[in-house]
Design a protein around this nucleic acid. Structure first.
Lengths: 341, 341
DNA sequence: CTGTTAGCGCCTTCAG
DNA sequence: CTGAAGGCGCTAACAG
């Protein structure tokens, strides 16, 4: 038995009506009798009809699908952003196709092409670490396809972005440490071609300056985003001539592994660490109850970016939008009862 | 300026040839002159042509797309499984559409429908916690669309699955604790309608039995998979009349938060905890160096499931495959030098 | 090797 | 309110 490929024509034939009517009925058009609708629905159910979205999308020239490109789906920030994206898209009647660039420019370009070939209605992008030229996004403008960057953005004119207040978060974190009495604060940073690491570093510097602490470039460790960087960083701290009494980390894993390492070496460093970008509530609350974190909600960012994108999709004709939305972060100082032990 | 919608017809017209030839050239058919191909390619590039996959897929009746349904993309096991899926699919020329059921049966059904409507070539599914009837998967069989379950499977006859050796992993973990001298071992389990929690419990029981320890149902805590369950479990342990000297946890977060809680209460429980299902290497290595884990690689499982699915897609006519692949786990006893502190 | 023709399944004019 | 006709963009027969 061949796989049952029921089309609107089959339904039409069996009911002795025209396929246009069936189409209208299934799309709940107001120009069809309620009675006809009922008949069509019943028959469709009976035959196990399933709409072919490919055909429909081709004909309508609209897919109700949003393309998403993230560096890596397994990073918690991105997977929670995707949760926010799906939630928002879903309830607005959109599907989502997710692609990973794996931090490679080449893959990112391929992703853009695939998504365009699949005729997505809009694109949500967080660029890869390697992305320094933006030519692959030019086609979108020409094709009139809305694009919204989130978190990791590009400096493309007339493009909307949804970002985190990285500068402010870094400033808050650093100031928090200073107010706790820290004087020599190490900063774990990331790749400096990413805007967000630049902003965080700037916030760190600003806080130091405000409180009259001299900025020392030797105290900034610019790592790549690898798993073991934290451990290496910890070694660097120990090797420093200065006595370090605070860490502001712009990289969650780095901070935690550094802390573990320092403990191993017999140092005590409990609450003099502040972490920014640490969005995994579960883990952060559970693992290191004494850690101060600046929480940045991937979910909120995903949500905001999607709302903005869908608005653009649905008002495409009207105007070009160029909006930058900044999502606030929250400093969370955890209860440190564990210290008693 | 309208968005440039260049089709093969435009290319054909400009070159004074037929659109079929253009189609063949772009698809690198062997039945086209190299010279023609070059001309077509050049023109396509010049005009900024982009193939419309919707049309192509509709015509070919094949999308080269795999649908994936997972309970929640932000759980690390699943996001790493997806990484494995994408990797494998990508290099075999397939795209991937990911859906979340959010542990709800209703959403899972909706996901299946969306994916079918988008005419995916095959489906990879890890069922939701709520899924107890499997009717929504029946349509696949009828439509002759391959389906492979991974990790969380259903007992549907003639369906392939890629699973973890949960029984064995649980057995190993429990035995590990026993050999370390534990006598009263609590087991953190999960929803018993999921096969994998049943298997893990069975493995736990088997290990106890082998070593002559009586199974005590009061020592099994069947939680839902919520974040705070670990903390609640820890309270339960403390409230127990028995002295607990080991924990076998089938739920990563539960174990870690329980441990934190116990520490707070002033108990020492370091390496007498074994966790299964804890696949986040980074976190597990970093957070609790003394934790013994049974590592189960989501990536491997995703990879295995995808290979199996693609094989089925591409040999659809030949035979129905009903294979069960079990991926092995590895017990990792971490260095516990931290204890010295 | 290339052209002609037809149609995938649906939706959208335009008539009636 | 319903029917008839055409086409979205591409590819697969079948000719030549």
């Amino acid at each position: 038995m061949e796989s049952n490929k029921i089309t609107i024509h089959d339904i039409a034939k069996q009911l002795g009506i025209n396929s246009s009517t069936v189409s209208r009925a299934l799309n709940n058009s107001s120009r069809v009798t309620e009675k006809t609708k009922q008949k069509v629905m019943a028959k469709a159910l009976e035959l196990g009809y399933l709409k072919n979205d490919l055909a429909s999308n081709l004909r309508r020239n609209k897919t109700n699908t949003i393309g998403v490109i993230v560096p890596r789906i397994s990073r918690h920030f991105f997977s929670s952003a995707i949760a926010g994206i799906e939630e928002t898209a879903y309830s607005a009647g959109y599907n989502v196709i997710i692609c990973q660039s794996l931090e490679q420019l080449e893959r990112e370009q391929a992703n853009v092409n695939t998504l365009l070939a699949n005729r997505v209605d809009g694109l949500l992008v967080s660029v890869s670490m390697e992305t320094e030229n933006y030519e692959h996004f030019n086609g979108l403008r020409q094709r009139n396809i809305p694009l919204v960057f989130f978190d990791r953005h590009c400096n493309i004119p007339n493009t909307s972005k949804v970002l985190i207040d990285d500068f402010q978060a870094a400033f808050d974190a650093t100031q928090h440490l200073i107010l706790k009495g820290c004087e020599t604060i190490v900063h774990f940073s990331g790749p400096q071609n990413l805007e967000l690491y630049k902003s965080r570093k700037a916030g760190y510097k600003a806080a130091l300056q405000k409180h009259g602490i001299l900025f020392d470039p030797n105290l900034v460790f610019e790592s790549r985003l690898m798993e073991l960087d934290g451990v290496l960083n910890a070694h660097k701290i120990i090797a420093l001539s200065q006595h370090v009494d605070g860490i502001f980390s712009a990289n969650d894993v780095a901070a935690i592994s550094a802390m573990q390492q320092l403990k191993k070496e017999g140092m005590r460093v409990p609450e003099d660490i502040a972490v920014v970008g640490f969005s995994n509530e579960t883990i952060s609350a559970v693992i290191e109850p004494s850690l101060t974190t600046i929480n940045q909600s991937g979910f909120e960012i995903g949500k905001g970016a999607t709302e903005l994108l869908i608005f653009q999709i649905e008002h495409k004709e009207t105007e070009i939008i160029n909006e930058t939305i900044i999502i606030k972060s929250h400093l969370i100082e955890r209860d440190s009862s564990q210290k008693a032990h």
